[in-house]
Design a protein around this nucleic acid. Structure first.
Lengths: 359, 359
DNA sequence: AAGAAATGTGTGTCCGCACACACACTTTGT
DNA sequence: ACAAAGTGTGTGTGCGGACACACATTTCTT
C-alpha cells in the first residue's frame, strides 16, 4: 500500500529508499548501474511491500509490439488443428482490440524435418516467443536446445515432451485420457454376457500425432490390465492409414469387421467419424459402442445421429487461447506462468453437444 | 489505424474531425454539450475507423475503484458453493495484482426472503455491479425489477432465470445436464438383463437449490421417455432431507434399500457422497452405478475409492472466475458481454480426477 | 443594451511505468 | 594534473485516455 491508499508504486519505493524513481526502475529492470547497497535496499523494500507493477501502465508505456511465432502441424479444413487455431485467433483478436500490438508469424509443418526447420526459422526471425506443438521427440529436443541457448521462450501445446525447459505446457496427459475412456468403456460393456471384444484403432496421417495416440492406447490398455480384466475382455489393435477416399477406407474396415463385429471401438484420435461412416454402411445386427476424440464438425454430426456414442475432448480451443494469453502474461506483463496447465476432460453426447464448437 | 501505424487513438479522431481531443472525449462519454453536426461527424469517424479505446490507458486513467457486490447462498466448508467462491477469489486476486482496485461487498442468504433483502441492500450500498445466484423465481423477479429501474448491472451464476435483463448468465442448462447423465446411465445399464431399476434422488437443504435439481431430474427422465424406454426401465424418485448426522441418514436410506437395491442411482446434487457412504455400509451383493454432481472434496474421495462411478461438474470454479472477469470487462473496459456463457459438462472418474479442485 | 446564463470547445494535468538523456562524482591514463 | 572514461543517480517526456478547468461565443433576461 502507499500514501494514496491503493497499490504500491515505484514512486513509493523510491520515497522509502530515499532515491529517485529512476534508480528503482534500474533495479527492477536490471539495467544500468546501481550501487550494491542501494540495490539491496530497494529489493528489500520491493519484497517487503510486495510490489506488483501495474500491468496497465506497463503495457501502455512500453510500446514494443509482441512478435509471436506460431508453429503447428499443417491441416485441412475441418480437421483437429482448426480448433486450437481458432482459440489462438480468438485470443489475438481480443488482445488486439484491447490495445495490445501483436504480430504473428505462422509456420506449419507436414513432417518432423519441416518442424525442425520451421522452428529454426522462428529463431532466425527473432520472435519474442514461440507457441508450438512438437512433432517428434528427437527433433523437438534438437530444436529446444537451440531455443534454450538463445533464451527464447516457448510454450508447448497439445503434446508434452517431458523435461523440456518450456515456459509452460498446455494440454492433457494422454495416458490419463486413455484410462478414462477405458473406465467408460468398461462400465458400458461390463454387463454384456460372455467375453467382450474391444478394438482400439489408431488412424493417423503422420508420425507426430502417433505419439498421443499410442499414449492414449496404453492408458486404455493399462486400465484393463490393472483391473485384471484380461479374462473377460479381448483386445485387438489396428493401425489404419488415413485414406482420403471413404470407399477405400470402408473396404478396408469392412474387411476387418468380417471377422466379427466388436462390442466396443475406441478410436484414439479425431478420425472416428470415418469409422462411424463405415459402420453405418455395414449391415449387422449389432452396433458397437463407439468412442473417439475431438469436437470437429464431422464428429459432431455423427454424435448427433448417435453413430458415435461418446466424444472426448481436451478443450482444444482453450489450449490455443491460453497459449497466447500465457505468452502475453509472461513476456508483456512479466508474470510467472504455471509450468503445466492441464485441461479438463470433456465428454460429449448427443445431449450436451454445443451448436458451434468455436470457443 | 493512424499515422504511427498502430491503433486508432482519440487524437487521430480529433485530427480527422478537425476538433480537439476534449470534444471527442465528450461524445465518447456522452458528457458535456457538443453540437449536433460535430457529434455526428465524430461518431461517423469512430465507426469508420473502428475505434476501440485502449483498455490499459482507460484503466490507468480512470482511478475509480470498482465496487462489486457478491450475493451467494450461505454454505459450510466443503460444500458446493465453496467452488464458485474460490473462482471468484482467484479472479479478484489476479486483477488486484494487476493494478485494478476492486472492493467487494459480500452477502449470503439462507432463504428467499434473505436473498431479496440482501439484494436490496446491495442496491442501497450502491454497488457498481452485482454477481449473484438467484434463489427462487418470485424473489428474483421482484429484486431484478428494482435493479432494472436503477439500471444496476448484475450477472447471474449457476442458475438462470429466463428473460431477466442480466448482463450475462454464466452456468449451464440443468435439463441438458440431466439428459446427458441419462444417456450415460442408459448406456451403462442397457446390457443388464431384465427390467432395470433406476433411482433418482434429490438431497437438498433449501428451496433455492431445488430448482436445479428438479430441472436435472426432468432432463434425466426426458431422455428415457424420448427413447421410449419405459418398458425396460422402472424409476423411483426420492426426496431426502439432508440430515447432518450420517447415522440418521444411513438409517433412512437403508430403509429404502430394503425394498431392493437398484441398478443405478442418480443423485441430482452434490451430496452423492452421503449415498456413497451409506451404500458402503449396506451389505449387499450388488453395487449400483452411482452418479452425482460436483467436485467437492468428499465426493472426490468417494470417486477415488470407486464408490461413486461418475462425477459430473459444470466448471463451478470457472463460473465464479468468469463472473468477475465479465463484470470488469463490462464496467471497466466497457466491452460488450455475451448474454449467455454456458459452461462445459465435465465428467470425472477415478482416472482423471484432479488432485486439487481449485482452479 | 448590458449583464447573466447557457452552450460549445480547447488546454492542461494526471494515472504508473519505461526509457532517453543529463549530469555529478569517481577512477584511470598519460 | 588534467582530460578521458567509467560509475551512479536524477529529471523529463510520452504512452492513450479521463476529467477538471478555462474561455469564447451565443442566447436569454430585464
Amino acid at each position: 500500500m502507499s500514501e494514496n491508499g491503493t497499490h504500491t508504486r515505484i514512486k513509493d519505493i523510491a520515497a522509502r529508499a530515499g532515491c529517485s524513481i529512476g534508480t528503482v526502475d534500474r533495479v527492477i529492470h536490471n539495467r544500468g548501474k546501481v550501487s550494491e547497497s542501494v540495490k539491496k535496499r530497494i529489493l528489500e523494500i520491493i519484497s517487503e511491500l510486495d510490489y506488483k507493477p501495474n500491468v496497465n501502465a506497463r503495457v501502455l508505456a512500453s510500446k514494443h509490439p509482441l512478435n509471436l511465432g506460431i508453429l503447428l502441424p499443417a491441416y485441412n479444413e475441418g480437421e483437429y488443428w482448426e480448433l486450437p487455431t481458432a482459440g489462438i485467433q480468438h485470443a489475438l483478436d481480443r488482445y488486439n482490440e484491447q490495445g495490445y500490438q501483436i504480430n504473428v508469424f505462422r509456420l506449419s509443418y507436414h513432417n518432423p524435418e519441416q518442424f525442425y526447420k520451421a522452428g529454426m526459422q522462428m529463431l532466425a526471425e527473432n520472435m519474442d516467443g514461440i507457441i508450438m506443438s512438437p512433432a517428434t521427440y528427437k527433433e523437438s529436443v534438437r530444436l529446444v536446445r537451440s531455443y534454450f541457448q538463445e533464451a527464447k521462450p516457448f510454450i508447448l501445446i497439445d503434446s508434452d515432451i517431458q523435461g523440456l525447459p518450456s515456459l509452460s505446457f498446455i494440454g492433457k496427459d494422454p495416458v490419463q485420457s486413455g484410462s478414462t475412456v477405458a473406465n467408460l468403456t468398461h462400465k458400458v460393456t461390463r454387463h454384456i454376457p460372455g467375453q467382450k471384444r474391444i478394438w482400439v484403432i489408431n488412424i493417423s496421417k503422420n508420425l507426430s500425432q502417433m505419439y498421443s495416440f499410442l499414449a492414449r492406447e496404453s492408458g486404455f490398455m493399462n486400465y484393463f490390465s490393472n483391473k485384471q480384466l484380461q479374462e473377460e475382455y479381448s483386445f485387438k489393435t489396428y493401425e489404419i492409414e488415413d485414406r482420403d477416399i471413404q470407399e477405400e477406407f470402408d473396404k478396408h474396415f469392412h474387411n476387418l469387421l468380417s471377422d466379427g463385429v466388436p462390442h466396443a471401438i475406441y478410436v484414439t484420435g479425431s478420425r472416428v467419424y470415418k469409422i462411424a461412416n463405415s459402420l453405418k454402411k455395414y449391415k449387422s445386427g449389432y452396433k458397437p459402442l463407439l468412442i473417439g476424440h475431438d469436437l470437429i464438425r464431422q464428429n459432431m454430426e455423427r454424435v448427433r445421429d448417435e453413430s458415435i456414442d461418446f466424444l472426448i475432448e481436451e478443450e482444444a480451443g482453450r489450449q490455443g487461447y491460453l497459449a497466447v494469453e500465457s505468452m502475453i502474461r509472461s513476456i508483456v506483463h512479466k508474470e510467472k506462468i504455471e509450468k503445466k496447465q492441464l485441461m479438463n476432460l470433456l465428454i460429449y453426447t448427443r445431449e450436451n453437444l454445443p451448436l458451434d464448437p468455436s470457443e
